[in-house]
């Protein structure tokens, strides 16, 4: 019994650091870099992606016994795209400004490899509750990285965090504007990955 419980905790917490989708597994990079320009956009994108990830994990695990193995991938894609359409239209109706900023990246949640990957590698073999925990963990890991990146990028490029002015005047008067553009995103994720390699998960020596 206790073993089972610790396994469940493992499913939940694996996604946050040890199997973090962006910084460790390096999947779902496009939305992570594209939408982390301001903290608000990044948070909106994470909520949308998390919703799709958790729901598709639950549904895939719910129908896993009826799905023949040979057609599982198209079925997963249909399930995922259904939830993406729900998110797409809901955001268009209730948060139109955020939707306009995120643009094409909302429908592109459907090709986020993280979501299909979890459906295939986890939800297809595990029960509903475990799949929910796994989805939640991965979603939290995704959100965490996106929000951290966006806070750094927003702060250095505008001197604001979540739209509030914080910190010394020189950042506001002379912002590092390039942080909001693609070069800043690539530089930041490179440094974050190097930080992870150095302090958290050391890569195997190759030579």
């Amino acid at each position: 019994m206790r073993n089972k419980k610790s396994k469940r905790l493992q499913y939940l917490f694996n996604g946050i650091i040890l199997e973090n989708p962006i910084l460790i597994l390096m999947i779902g990079l496009c939305p992570a870099l594209a939408t982390s320009t301001t903290a608000k956009d990044a948070f909106g994108m994470s909520v949308a992606t998390s919703f799709v990830l958790i729901c598709s994990n639950i549904v895939v695990s719910l129908i896993r016994k009826f799905v023949p193995e040979s057609v599982r991938i198209p079925i997963f894609i249909i399930i995922i795209s259904t939830f993406v359409t729900i998110v797409d239209y809901t955001m268009q109706a209730y948060v139109p400004t955020l939707y306009r900023v995120l643009g094409v990246f909302v429908p592109l949640i459907v090709v986020n490899c993280m979501i299909l990957g979890r459906a295939e590698a986890f939800a297809y073999q595990h029960n509903i509750f475990d799949s929910f925990l796994d989805g939640l963990g991965k979603a939290v890991g995704f959100t965490l990285v996106l929000v951290i990146m966006s806070i750094i990028r927003e702060y250095f490029s505008t001197g604001e965090i979540f739209g509030f002015v914080i910190g010394p005047r020189f950042i506001i008067s002379q912002p590092m504007l390039f942080m909001i553009f693609p070069p800043g995103a690539f530089l930041l994720i490179g440094l974050l990955k190097a930080f992870i390699n150095k302090f958290i998960i050391k890569p195997e020596p190759t030579d």
Partner: peptide, 25 residues
């Protein structure tokens, strides 16, 4: 250094290439 090998340095190189492309914006 070992922590920059592979992905991190590729990202940083990509950042420099992107900076060049940003000139066209």
């Amino acid at each position: 250094s070992r922590s920059f090998k592979g992905y991190p340095i590729a990202f940083i190189a990509a950042s420099l290439v992107a900076l060049a492309f940003l000139g066209f914006i």
